[in-house]
Structure formats: C-alpha cells, structure tokens
C-alpha cells in the first residue's frame, strides 16, 4: 500500500462534500482526521488558527489546499484526510483560488512524514491531478489513483 493510502486511514475520505466557506472545509478535513484516529479536536482548531494568523498559504497549487498545523500533543499519529468539494470555495488566495480539493495533514514530528510528502509531491506534480481526484466518485477510485 502506498504511503498516501496508509496515511488516509479508514474514515478519512469524503467525496463531493458541500461546504459554505473555507472555514467549514478546514473544519471538515479536521473532523476526518479525528474520526480516523489521527488527531484530537484541538488540531482542527490549530489548523484554522494557522490560516487566520498567516493567511491562505496552505493553498499550495491551483484548486488544492493542504491545511496543517505544527506537531503537538493533538497529533496522535501522522496522517492525512481528503475532502473533495461539490462547489469550490475561496480561501482568499490570489492565484490558486478557488479550492476544490482539501488535504488535511497531521505530522507527529518534523521527520517521519517526509517520505509521505515526497510521494504526495510526485502525484501533484502531474498536470491535471487535482481534476483526476475530482472525477472520482468512490473511495476505491481515489485509492487506486494513489497506488
């Protein structure tokens, strides 16, 4: 199993979600990290606080946000969550709005997730990868894209 599929624990993927704002999108990505046993609720609040404090820099590519916060006691294990949005939401990013794919990221420390992110970078360096994710209607399709 790929590192991304291991990071996306059962219960961490939600496809075609409807949210009204970036805050709700981040909240949902945090809830999925909690539901899949990787973080506590405090981590969700930290992800939102991070964006409130530093701006929408977590929108790292057109259509793609990767909310995250520092390693802390709120992280139980390194993991990711994935939300695809039915309607895009604006994060306030000058170039990469609107966002349709939200990857929550939680890391136990500064080192253990590096190979995971390397795999992630490899996938998203492929042109059109965000659209490939959006065209998935089942979790199994998502998981095969990451294998």
């Amino acid at each position: 199993m790929s590192l991304i599929n291991q990071a996306l624990a059962p219960g961490s993927i939600r496809l075609g979600a409807s949210v009204g704002s970036w805050q709700e999108a981040v909240e949902l990505s945090g809830e999925l990290l909690v539901a899949s046993g990787r973080t506590t609720k405090a981590y969700t609040d930290a992800m939102t606080a991070n964006i409130n404090e530093l701006g929408p820099y977590v929108v790292i590519a057109p259509g793609l946000a990767m909310p995250h916060a520092r390693p802390s006691e709120a992280v139980l294990d390194t993991g990711m969550s994935l939300v695809t949005l039915r309607e895009p939401v604006a994060f306030g990013h000058k170039k990469n709005d609107p966002v349709t794919v939200v990857f929550g990221l939680a890391a136990l420390d500064h080192d253990k997730h590096l190979e995971l992110l390397s795999e992630f970078a490899g996938k998203f360096s492929q042109p059109g990868f965000v659209n490939s994710l959006l065209s998935c209607h089942a979790e199994s399709e998502i998981r095969s894209l990451f294998n």
């Binding site: 820099y57 995250h68 520092r70 390693p71 890391a107 500064h110 992630f120």
Partner: peptide, 16 residues
Amino acid sequence: VCGAGIGTSVLLKMNA
C-alpha cells in the same frame, strides 16, 4: 519556509 515547518515548506524543499 512555512508557518508550521511540516507541510508547504517540506514540499517546497523537495521540489527545490
């Protein structure tokens, strides 16, 4: 550089 030092900055480092 990024806010938390675990996400955006790591991706930037790898691609750089």
